[in-house]
Design a protein around this nucleic acid. Structure first.
Length: 468
DNA sequence: GCATGATCATGC
DNA sequence: GCATGATCATGC
């Protein structure tokens, strides 16, 4: 198709955006009935939008889709939560990582930066039993990363790059990074392997991706701009809730000048905590003029206070999905308790098709911030001292024990056996134990009858060794 | 009411 | 001291 025939100016990002907006509030089939001839599955919508709406053949070039305007097109699904709000259905998968080629580049030469500096995001609402071609576009906008976020993304890219340079591409994990991640990509997770430059070991094929929590922050931001969305709110109540969420979040770093020379986001956070190491809760409370409140929210409140956040939520932690966890040590350095995680969802686990797509996998591949306290001899809970904080992600070699727990649990739930889940002694990393209000507090099992509530735990000894 | 983070209680 | 079972407390 000759350029002159294109209904937009391919050199102009504004023109491309304006033309994309014809789809806002509509489905592809609504305005391109001729596209009914295609019915391919995954990725089909993106390809069909390129072909039928924008009038060019889908490609797999290393440049952005609209090379002349430097705009990369991405169609990505939203899902509705039970409360009616819309969130990203999944991470946003970008280009494949060629470990060999990428190892030779710096950030600005990287395939990630070349392709994804400016993204035309077209969010459509996923609905069960509907083909994507028939689903409605709800948010359409251009996106480039704000300076403070780009700093974290560069740090993330460097973490991925350094692992490739160290011959450890096979140990990459989504939990290694904050916003930009190396996610597995292929017909079957882990099935397709690729060469890496500094090791003979083959590494699972991975692509750059933006974490779904970060995408959620883009969705929220879009709702501040009426021209970017169509028919998103179901009620005033919901609109107010979103306004509140937007108003209740605050960034740690508002100016990239806050970083010291060569410092990463992670190092900046650790630096801010360091001067409080060894201090009691009461001392930190006095010094910062705050009250940390009760156990459940204490660790997050400590983070907020020390990082200087006045509002409810720490923006960077929300966007990266950092899970803040408290660890309490006895005087001798032993853990007071194992570390608990959300409940086993019996109905869900029997439906999960593989370990990599399981809820437990998602929990265990998060980036964690451990806030570690140590107990003195006195018996006053408030007198625990802040020992240190540390970011952590479960190493790939330990994830296999997560898989063992998941496989064992799924099988037992399928068989209706709710009595003998894996215990501490059965698995070096994780186990399952009851967790309920009381003995009468039960939940529906996969077979429909009421069973005990259980939750996932990281073993006490395991956590002890990893914080050393 | 329920999910979640954390802690208590008991027995070996 | 630790594993295991059970429960408390908070926030939405």
């Amino acid at each position: 198709m000759a350029d002159l025939e294109l209904p937009y100016d391919k050199h102009s990002k504004e023109s491309i955006l304006n033309y994309a907006r014809h789809l806002l509030g509509k489905s592809l089939w609504d305005i391109h009935p001729e596209a009914r001839q295609v019915q391919s599955g995954k990725g089909g919508l993106g390809n069909a939008v390129e072909k039928y709406h924008f009038g060019y053949e889908p490609n797999s070039i290393s440049e952005a889709d609209f090379a002349d305007a430097g705009v990369e097109l991405k169609c990505t699904p939203l899902k509705r939560l039970p409360d009616g709000s819309m969130v990203s259905k999944e991470r946003l998968v970008l280009n494949m990582i060629d470990y060999v080629e990428e190892s030779k580049k710096n950030f600005h030469e990287s395939s990630f930066w070349k392709k994804n500096q400016l993204i035309l995001l077209m969010f459509y609402l996923h609905e069960e039993f509907k083909l994507p071609f028939d689903e409605l576009f709800k948010i359409i906008r251009l996106w480039n990363f704000p300076e403070a976020d780009l700093k974290i993304i560069k740090d993330d890219w460097t973490v991925i790059h350094n692992k490739i340079l160290a011959g450890k591409a096979h140990e990459l994990s989504e939990g290694d990074t904050f916003y930009l991640a190396a996610c597995t990509k292929g017909s079957k997770a882990g099935a397709e392997m690729r060469e890496q430059p500094y090791s003979t070991e083959k590494a699972p094929q991975r692509a750059y991706s933006i974490k779904s929590k970060y995408i959620n922050s883009i969705i929220l931001d879009s709702l501040k701009h009426p021209e970017m969305f169509s028919d998103v709110f179901m009620s005033d109540k919901q609109r107010k809730k979103i306004e509140k969420t937007l108003a209740d979040t605050e960034s740690v770093v508002r100016d990239v000048k806050d970083y010291r020379e060569g410092e990463s986001f992670e190092q900046l956070i650790e630096r801010k905590f360091q001067r409080f190491y060894g201090k009691t809760i009461a001392e930190i409370e006095t010094e910062l003029n705050v009250n940390f409140g009760q156990a459940k929210s204490m660790a997050y409140n400590v983070c907020r206070a020390i990082l200087g956040i006045k509002k409810d939520k720490i923006a960077e932690f929300e966007k990266a999905g950092v899970a803040v966890k408290t660890i309490r040590l006895e005087q001798n350095g032993n853990l007071k308790e194992a570390m608990s995680f959300p409940n086993v969802n019996y109905k869900e686990i029997v439906e999960e098709d593989c370990w990599e797509n399981s809820a437990l996998y998602e929990m265990f591949t998060q980036r964690f911030l451990f806030v570690i306290f140590r107990k003195p001899e006195v018996k006053d809970d408030k007198q625990v001292r802040l020992e240190k904080v540390m970011f952590w992600t479960m190493p790939v070699e330990d994830l296999k024990y997560g898989r063992i727990l998941w496989e064992d649990t799924q099988l037992k739930v399928q068989l209706g056996n709710y009595e003998y889940f894996m215990k501490t002694a059965d698995n070096p990393v994780c186990h399952i134990r009851p967790k309920a209000q009381n003995a009468a507090d039960t939940t529906e099992g996969a077979q429909g009858f009421q069973v005990k509530k259980m939750c996932y735990w990281l073993n006490r000894e395991y956590v002890k060794t990893l914080i050393k």
